[in-house]
Design a binder for these strands. Structure first.
Length: 497
RNA sequence: CGGGGUGUGGCUCAGUUUGGUAGAGCGCACGGUUCGGGACCGUGAGGUCGGCGGUUCAAAUCCGCCCACCCCGACCA
């Protein structure tokens, strides 16, 4: 008994209640989403994880096109002096840039290799592409008739982080970055807000992850932005996770790269800019929103395999009657993303556990007993519930409806979780009390005087930061919980990833 | 960079205190019995014990130096 228990534990991933961060790492590796690379701080995205990214990318790419954007590609090497042009931008990224200083290798005399020729001017590996893109926009934009420019690129970027975690923070990651140029501030702000709304829709409708939308405080905004909008999600361990950002950059980069245009009334003005991005961090947010102690839980709309069919038939005589029905079902469900796991070398129990670990939303089990009863057994990944569908039914319609139900159910569950973990806090004592223990404490809505000084103090004393500022019609003024100064509205605080 | 720790088959680790033929579990391969919730039995492959040097008849174990990685303190999609 004890031996059996220990053996099972070795196969299971670490339960969330025991160690949430180990659970996450276990899950990512065991579900074969990603693996550590020989270069510290970098990760290998394995086929299961990359399939998820491809599905996200395809959905987002379609939404970008619908909103008038085109894809392009800019180089990953950027002249060092470009970064220095915009004061805040350089301050924000200088410390974490990877820098290329040499080309070529030569023997080092000890059997290894060493860099050979030093470059005349070092190059940085893009931490983001505003600078090189605005350099190019400067050459492309002459008049208002060249505007707007609405470009997106899918790319990798490098930020030399000291503390890394798979998907959430790695030294190289994949993302998309939109960079737009406009003739007026209003148009640019509208663009930034439109893309924020695209991100909100993607997070909620595809990932089934509810997000708060709004903008960042001065301390939290992007280096070089006038205003940073964001979508902010809540993880199961009650921390905030920034899942996407959209920036109104004003004329900061146009000034830095001297990008002016001739206006309709024959004046000259600097061009207005936006940039917006989401990254492979979305995969981390997705995992932390829905998955459980058995492994990954995927929303059907993003799952590569939406349904797996497990035939239960060991003996030849059972296979002879079960497999034709399984093949028939697979054909009916082909357009939905179905996979048949008829591998004779593993047991049904093993298959159940394996597909649950990988997050397949629905599993159909068909054995002799089902056939005799005239039904097929259906197991839902989100709830673990098993039910049956009559064999005569329109399987595709039933399964499709179930998948929609799972998608909606995941979202509803996450919305309820967020509601349970969001509270209004009206005194600093209560605020500190709620954040008294290690780990996440959910979203705290409190009045704040809007100063960076107070925000810094709160962060130092409690570990929480302003995650998002949301303006609404029914905002009620109050007083800052720390200084007592007037506050126009509550803002949302949390400990963050 | 400051403090703490660990390096032993693919993975998790025991063995080091007290030197004496390198081990376990998982995984892997093969064979058989199994298969409605991670099957079992048997057989087998796989390790310069992080590196270099020293002490010793003998070093995973003791000594010295070096290297690597992990954890904790300031920023970040």
């Amino acid at each position: 008994m004890i031996m059996a228990q220990q053996k099972r534990d070795e196969k299971a991933i670490c339960p969330r209640a025991e160690d949430y961060s180990r659970w996450y790492t276990d899950l990512v590796q065991r579900a074969e989403l990603a693996d550590y690379s020989p270069v510290p701080g970098c990760m290998v995205i394995r086929p299961n994880g990359y399939a998820l990214w491809e599905n996200m990318r395809d959905a987002l790419d379609g939404m970008f096109r619908e909103t008038g954007h085109e894809n392009a590609y800019f180089p990953m090497f950027i002249p060092v002096e470009f970064l220095a042009r915009e004061a805040e931008h350089v301050e924000g990224f200088a410390m974490e840039c990877g820098v290329v200083t040499h080309s070529g290798l030569e023997p080092d005399g000890e059997g290894g290799l060493k860099p050979k020729g030093q470059l005349d001017a070092p190059l940085i590996l893009r931490p983001t592409s505003e600078t090189i893109i605005w350099h190019m926009y400067g050459q492309w934009i002459q008049s208002y008739r060249d505007l707007p420019i609405l470009i997106n690129q899918w790319a990798n970027v490098v930020r030399w982080e000291m503390r890394t975690r798979l998907f959430l923070r790695t030294r190289e990651f994949l993302w998309q970055e939109g960079h737009t140029a406009h003739a007026t501030a209003d148009e640019a702000v509208t663009e930034a807000e439109t893309m924020l709304e695209v991100y909100r829709r993607f997070a909620e409708e595809w990932m089934a992850v509810p997000v708060l939308t709004g903008y960042k405080s001065e301390a939290e905004k992007f280096a070089g932005a006038v205003r940073t909008y964001c979508i902010e999600a809540l993880t199961q361990d009650k921390r905030a996770i920034q899942a996407g950002t959209s920036h109104y950059l004003g004329q900061n980069f146009a000034r830095a790269f001297d990008v002016t245009f001739q206006t309709e009334d024959n004046q000259r003005d600097y061009v207005y800019a936006t940039s917006w991005g989401v990254s492979t961090r979305l995969i981390g947010a997705l995992i932390m929103a829905h998955s459980d102690d058995r492994g990954l839980v995927l929303p059907p709309k993003l799952a590569r395999t939406k349904v797996v069919i497990v035939p239960i038939a060991r003996k030849d005589e059972d296979r002879a009657v079960v497999m034709p029905v399984v093949e028939q079902m697979a054909a009916e469900l082909k357009h939905l993303g179905v996979k048949v796991d008829a591998d004779p070398r593993t047991s049904p129990g093993f298959k159940y556990a394996e597909h649950e670990l990988r997050g397949v939303p629905l599993r159909l089990e068909l054995g002799r007993r089902d056939l005799e009863a005239g039904h097929v057994t259906v197991a839902r990944r989100d709830s673990g519930e098993k039910s049956t569908l009559p064999l005569g039914a329109d399987l595709a319609t039933c399964v499709s409806a179930l998948l929609d139900e799972v998608q909606a159910g995941l979202f509803a569950r996450a919305v309820a979780f967020r509601a349970e973990n969001t509270r209004d806090v009206d005194s600093y004592d209560e605020f500190r009390d709620v954040l008294g223990e290690e780990g996440g404490a959910g979203f705290l809505r409190a009045h704040w005087d809007g100063t960076t000084e107070t925000e810094k103090r709160i962060q130092e004393e409690t570990g929480a930061t302003v995650r998002v500022i949301t303006e609404a019609e029914d905002d009620e003024p109050g007083t800052c919980i720390v200084t007592g100064a007037p506050s126009a509205r509550r803002v949302t605080f949390a400990r963050a990833y």
